[in-house]
Amino acid sequence: MNSNHTSVNSPRRYYIVMWSMAVVMVMLFVACLVFGSVDIPLGDVLGSLTGGEVSRATSRVIVLETRLPMACTAMLAGAALSIAGLLMQTTFDNPLAGPSILGISTGSSLGVAIVMLALGGSIGGVLGSSLSALIGALLGAGVIMLVLLAFSSIVKNSVMLLIIGIMVSHLASSAISLLNFFSTQEGVHSYVIWGLGNFSGVTLERLPIFAILVIASVLLSMMLVKPLNALLLGARYAENLGVNIRGTRNRLLVLSGILTAVVTAFCGPIGFIGLIVPHIARLSLRSSNHIVLLPATALAGAVVALLCTLISVVPSASGIIPINAITPIIGVPIIIYIIVNRKRIAYFN
């Protein structure tokens, strides 16, 4: 049929977007290995990765022990947060939903704060990667999810639900403040550092468990593309199409909660990525069909997180800039652009 050529979101557009994002991702990945407190020549980077010759022995250690885990963590965390954001935006029927806006990140932070400050677990060590912090984050996210779920059956209006999320997030923040107030100085210091967000806390030994958790959750969310597409029409239409609304919604919220909690436990509460990346993916694909949108969101999330990581290591003398100081600089202009232009953006109409 001829009309295929006039289609606004042809498969061709999908392949162009995916391939260009993949190329950018590889370039950023390599850049993250090259640049840092010491710039390592590309040859040494490749030598370290392949086990070949390197001009300085320390280069191999830096690349393999520090930069490779950081770049991998950034990609995984970016993809995970972005998918979580997309799932929430579709579930809540609201393009401005996201892990940090709905208070899931804050819930995870509270869980981690209880573990780190109140129970005194693993202070001073590699904080984010400890198992107790992970469990704390999962429980914290779970509690916020349950609260949102309970309210979502009472409050149908998604904007109101969003505001409830923000309010609950403030409650969690106040609990965190109280914990900080009654905690030791070192405890507060390490918690504040964790709260600034960074991708360098995951060591090479911890990376596999982080990767498995993220990849498994992303694959599980791929299984839900069909009900996700039906939900674009709203819950009432989806139900008429035979979708089990309650079950699907629960599965989506649990998945996005796990994705957010895992990243928060390992990297701290990272803002904005989950909110903006689904928009970047939709705008570049010009489609909200989840079959193409979900993979594109994962890829775009990895790209954005790598970009933030690269920016964070640029002022090499004073160490790594906190990730949460960078994400708003990228995120806020995009959100404002989207809000200003929402009448001309197809997926708002």
Binding site: L233, A346, N349
Partner: peptide
Amino acid sequence: IVYTDRTLAGALT
């Protein structure tokens, strides 16, 4: 069923 609800399906063809 056909409702009159506005949907978020604007970016679907």
